[in-house]
Design a protein around this nucleic acid. Structure first.
Lengths: 102, 102
DNA sequence: TCAGTGTATGTCACATATGACATACAAACA
DNA sequence: TGTTTGTATGTCATATGTGACATACACTGA
């Protein structure tokens, strides 16, 4: 964005910044969301590397295809607990989990 | 335990083994519990290093002293989500979180 | 075009986690 | 002894997460 444009907007009461600022999220909230997304990506990567469908994984973890989809999408209704349990069920070690968090 | 004693017990229908076997926990369940305990310990360490009481921390994370005590005790009713949120609120970075998991 | 396969999204009844409260325990100190 | 400060434990109404279901979307091959 051009600086002049930004100044113009700010005169009208807009703050120009990152998406986080726009949404009013604190640093902690951002870190929490990022953490969940990292686990989501790890889950999808683990699943696809084993050539399982979401429905397959759902069976393994006693859940449903739709919930697996939400896990992988980082849906706000999905807990870290469920992500961690699913990852462990896929055979991912605690160590790998720690490494997936960056 | 003496081997003879063990055999005697097993004849009576007891299986002699680790606590995990006794409780009938799977490897995944053990890993999950260990993970939670590691976060618990990290939380307590972070809190005490800042010279905060459990009540102090409770205020910071909008919880209660009793729940903080349960977090640090690895109580089964405490979610990983709550532990992670509390750790982040204490200023622990994602990176440190990952490293705390071993 | 249609059918099959995998994934995404919305909703809901039910299960689990939550903060709050009471109260017990432990250690330090007068 | 009693008092204070910090921590542990049990319970409960309510908030949040859950599996399940329906259904939409995306892609592939016939």
């Amino acid at each position: 964005m051009r600086k002049a444009k930004q100044n113009a907007l700010e005169k009208k009461g807009w703050k120009v910044g990152s998406a986080e600022e726009f949404l009013g999220l604190s640093e902690q909230e951002i870190a929490y969301i990022e953490l969940k997304l990292e686990l989501s990506r790890k889950l999808k990567a683990s699943r696809t590397s084993k050539k399982l469908t979401q429905a397959d994984l759902a069976r393994v973890v006693n859940s449903s295809q739709s919930r697996v989809a939400k896990m992988e999408a980082g849906d706000p209704t999905v807990s870290i607990d469920l992500l961690v349990k699913s990852l462990l069920a896929l055979g991912v070690s605690k160590k790998e989990l720690g490494q997936a968090i960056s």
